[in-house]
Design a binder for these strands. Structure first.
Lengths: 235, 235
DNA sequence: CGCAACATTGAGAGCCATCAAGCAAAGTGG
DNA sequence: CCACTTTGCTTGATGGCTCTCAATGTTGCG
């Protein structure tokens, strides 16, 4: 019997291989990166990192779903991103994080202490390039997000999110039209700048227009891909 | 008499010295950077780069004000940023730009052809670090922007913009409470996800609440800095 | 001076937030 | 196994904020 730690490590290696962070890294460098990683297993709705906390580590989820949010002093919050395995978490400009991150579902997450991680970044140009690429991708994603919130109405914003989630499905599952939504309506609302009620009405509208169908367990089937794409207005 | 080109070059060097892009660069490296620069002088409301165009250059304004926008297929647009001298322009993830940029006022802009610029970036680690820092700063700014649009009401969004602009004044002018707004109400509206009329009403509201006063020539005086900061909800 | 561009203000409509109720699914304890 | 609770989703009614359409006022320029 393989020890749990070893099988988890194997899964980590498997996932990490396909992550943007580790693209093009030699297996030797990958091994080095894994030696500085700590593995954390968290239940649902646990804090990964806290807004205002010292940015002393970066993270890489290897399974489960997570959420990144920015909260204001009056309790309002803006959900910045929904994460899944292989997504880099830990961008910071200064000493501290300007957002919080939580698990949506039970998750296993690799934690890299900042000091050793960024030392490694300096030693491995490929890793540095990957970080730059990730940073650009995140920026472009946030710009899409900004455009959606600033210029679209409720149902089109939801279409935007569904399109985003669909496009991020693993390629093997790409022809598939089923989506799993591990987040609650309130999370989606705070992502789209809407209340949970308006979000629910947006689901109802897309349903009644025949764009999507919803099933048990927060499963969404995309019925009219072209209509969804047109509403989301991305290519 | 110094030739115009030379005096402009001197101004370029002066400005460039204080830009984030060129921070910590030796004067020798600065000189190298300037040798690959082309200087462009544009009138107001001219296109600097076009959404969808080939990302074959990056830019650095050395005077004037500029605007970056993302436009959708239905004509709606999201203003992404207001630029001024020393601001880096040219982030791209793929082959083409995903936004357009225009001059708001007559501007002089340095243009760096991408091939030679990024070759230089590879040769100068300091330049590469600066680019990374700029990228992070832009990301954080966009996140603030997202939070404002997603979670604030019209007058608070305007307060957010005014606060942003005030904070970006050169330090020498920092105690000053006067702001110049080179953009139109429609530009501000598209930046904040509002119509120009609602933007105008937001100005009126901040005026009537004694937070700001407006003068001729789109000058704004901040009367109640604390109220502005509280509305903008940033620190 | 007169025109053009931009800003302001008003009236009414529409979309979304708020408050509230009802419903469905999952978990809990007797 | 089944009340009971909890949690989350949906739907309805109402009010408020913003958009749209429109008119007026202001500034700047030829």
């Amino acid at each position: 019997m393989v020890p749990i730690v070893e099988s988890a490590k194997a899964q980590a290696q498997e996932t990490i291989l396909q992550s943007d962070l580790c693209a093009n890294l030699s297996s030797e460098n990958l091994e080095t990166l894994l030696t500085i990683a700590q593995m954390r297993t968290l239940g649902a709705n646990r804090e990964i990192l806290a807004q205002g906390g010292v940015a002393d580590a970066v993270y890489l989820p290897i399974n489960g779903y997570q959420l990144v949010e920015r909260s204001g002093s009056d309790g309002r919050r803006q959900v910045l991103a929904f994460l899944q395995c292989g997504d880099y978490l830990g961008i910071s400009a200064g000493q501290s994080f300007l957002y919080s991150a939580y698990t949506l579902t039970p998750s296993t997450i690799l934690r890299f202490p900042a000091s050793r991680f960024f030392q490694l970044v300096e030693e491995l140009p490929i890793l540095k390039d990957n970080l730059g690429r990730i940073s650009s991708q995140i920026l472009l994603r946030v710009i899409d997000h900004l455009f959606a919130i600033g210029q679209k109405r409720a149902h089109a914003r939801l279409a935007f999110l569904l399109w985003q989630l669909w496009q991020r499905l693993p390629e093997a599952r790409y022809p598939q039209r089923e989506l799993e939504l591990p987040m609650r309506r309130a999370d989606i609302g705070d992502y789209l700048g809407l209340t949970l009620e308006t979000t629910s009405r947006a689901f109802s509208r897309l349903r009644s227009e025949g764009v999507i169908a919803t099933r048990q367990g927060n499963q969404v089937e995309i019925l009219d891909m072209e209509a969804l794409r047109r509403l989301a207005e991305v290519d």
